[in-house]
Structure formats: structure tokens, C-alpha cells
Design a protein around this nucleic acid. Sequence first.
DNA 1: GTCTATAGCTTGATAGAC
DNA 2: GTCTATCAAGCTATAGAC
Lengths: 211, 211
Amino acid sequence: MIKEETHNREPDVSVRQRLLSSAASLFNRKGYAATTVREIVTEAGVTKPVLYYYYQNKEGIYLELLREPFQKFDTLIDAARGERGSAKQRLLHLANQVLVLFLENIDVARVFYSIYYGPPQGAPFFDFDTYHLKFQDVMSRLVNDGLQSGEFRKANVEDIVWAILGIINVTIETKLRHLEIDLGRDGLSRVLNLLFQGIVADERKGVGERE
Amino acid sequence: MIKEETHNREPDVSVRQRLLSSAASLFNRKGYAATTVREIVTEAGVTKPVLYYYYQNKEGIYLELLREPFQKFDTLIDAARGERGSAKQRLLHLANQVLVLFLENIDVARVFYSIYYGPPQGAPFFDFDTYHLKFQDVMSRLVNDGLQSGEFRKANVEDIVWAILGIINVTIETKLRHLEIDLGRDGLSRVLNLLFQGIVADERKGVGERE
DNA sequence: GTCTATAGCTTGATAGAC
DNA sequence: GTCTATCAAGCTATAGAC
């Protein structure tokens, strides 16, 4: 073998793990359908039967890949209900945590995006909707708290949730695009504060900063 | 032939057009990589050489598919600069037009989404970024007008653009998901107005409606 | 312009040895 | 657990007839 290649061959990392991270990288770069089993095993530095030994098939490795990040997402959502502070603080904190989780798993996030908002690509079913709806539900509760306490002005709960969700999503999307421009954690907070404070100058008070 | 199939066989529509709409439908349902040339021609009710006659190959039909909607997007952006009215009105109008364009081309929109924010799927390069940046640029100008005239309170122009973009995107995303819930044109306007007015109750004025 | 037929390749998956 | 060897099925693309 002249060409040992740069591939995934550290002996201390388990073969299982190598397969998983190679698959993650390839699904992230090429998409589920366009990635072949051959590419995954070559990049992991193993042969094909090894993949079929550890995972049932390409679908199996895909599902295993999504499992952990979405488990963490679920935990994070559950934890959000127990937080203390103002509704605004709690919403900012939750949004920030979700952003961090996505950024830490940006390759899985890209695959999720392309399949959830795009065509299924022949990938097996994964119940993204349940997580998404649960996330919206928790945000609705937080928003409702803010409305009950008078912290927020009277408005449609769901509309507020959509606005926050849109801002979280656009922050993630700046990272998914292959450009240098991205908002990051600070950007997310800034834009969310913009939403909380509003954009229109209020004639009943001077133009400028409020806080 | 027992089974004539439900396929695309209206004789009055040109073969070219049939191929294009079959491809649109399949890319939309399965994604670029997972769709085969065979499926496209079968659904269009023609044979394979016909596709290679009208379009160079699968890549050619894909590029042709994107051309028209993005041409329209471009036209729409250019037109936005000439509009009259307040900055807020012009932004609402532009956002609404963009949403309508996406909804009218929802199948192309889904393919765009999955490739722009997701992995390239083996699809040929299409310069989505240029359109996206041009859209952001026009919005920045409109926001700037609002800041100059004192219509908007002092804030970062780009942040305002991101907030608006996030709300437009989330509206489109509600349509892309395979759930019944979606915001629609009215929802988009409502949520954008929320952004303009802000969410937090201002202690310096009574809680409640402003307009 | 549209067909039938097929070349030439890549795919996911496994049998069987060690 | 991991290998070599292999397979059937499916793929894009085209040649050549009409």
C-alpha cells in the first residue's frame, strides 16, 4: 500500500466510533442518498462487512447518528421548564442552549435540516416532528408565563413563539451556509433583544436606548 | 398495457414541460440524489433518450428547474427598490412577495432549502448565495431608510435584517414541514408586526394595544 | 423526436474463510 | 471481529433504427 490515506485510523478509537464519525462527516458533506457504504468504510479504514456487523445497514448507522444529539435536545427542553428568572431571561437562555447544541453537532444539524425541511432522500423515518413540537410547547409555556405576569404586552402566544423560533433558526442557518458571515451566540442574543424591544421608534418616548 | 398509469401524459403539454414538472415533483419528494433518470422519464411518460435529447442530463434538468423561479426572485428584489411608502410598509410588502413566490414554487423551494442549508447531494453548483446576498442587501437599504427617517429606533441594521429574514424563513419552513400547521401570508404579517412593535411591555405606557 | 436495446459501471449486501 | 471474493440489481448514458 503506497497510499495509506488520511483516513480515520487511530487505533485507540473503537471501530464502531470510527464508522459513526465517518458516516457523520460524509452525510454532512454529500447527503444521505449520495453517500455510499463503500465511502463510509473506506474513510473509517475498515472493510464493508465490518459496517454490516456493527450496524444493520446504511439506515442503521444513520439512525444511530441522530440518536444522541436528539436525546440531548430532549433533555435540554425538559430542563428548561425548571429554570428560574424572568420569562425573557428564560427564553434567551433556552435559545442560547439550543444554538450551542446545534453548533456542537453542526454536521448532524445539516443532515437534519436537509431532511426535515427538504425531501426525505430515501433516508428512513425519524420522528423529528415530536421534538420540534415539544420545543414549541415549552416555548409557549415560557411565553405564557410572561404574558400572565404582565412582563410581555398582550399578543398571540404562538406568534411570539414563531418569531423567536425564526430568529433561532436564522442564526443556525448562517452557520449552515458555506459563507464566512455568521451570527453566533452574541448575534442570537442581540437579535432576540431586538424582538423583545421592537424596532419602531415610539413617538411617546425619545428615540434611543431603553435599557 | 393493462396499466396506463396516472402519469404525465396530457398530449397538449409539451414533452419538455412534462419532463420538467416530473423532475420537479420527484426532486421535491425524494431529493436530487435519490431521484433516478428512469423515474423522471417514466413519470413523464417518455423514454430515456428523450430526456437526454431535451436536456443534457440529470444535472441539466435540475439547473433548468431552478432558473425560472430564481429569475423571478431576482426581478422581485430589483423591483423592491422602487417601491413607495414607509420603510415598514415596503419591508412588509417585500417579505409578502417573497413568501408568495416561494409558496407558488414550493417544490423548487424544498429542493433549494435542502441543498442550500444541507449537503450538496451531488447536485451541480448553483449560485444561491448571490441571490441571498442581494436579497439581504435590498433589505438593508430599506432598513437604513427607516433609520435615517427616524421611523425605526437606533439599532444595528444587519441585526434588524436577520430578524426579518428569520421570520420570513420560519414562515416558509412551516410550509415545508409535512404538518398541517402553517403561518401563511397573514401569519407572516402578524409576526413581522410583532417584531416592529416589540414584545416587552413598556412600563412608560399602559399594557395593551398600540395600533 | 422518439423508440428499443444494451454497454459499462456502481450500488448495497453477503457467503465463507480465518 | 475482520477479511477476500463475489453477486444480483440498479444506475447513467448512448448507439442505431425509424
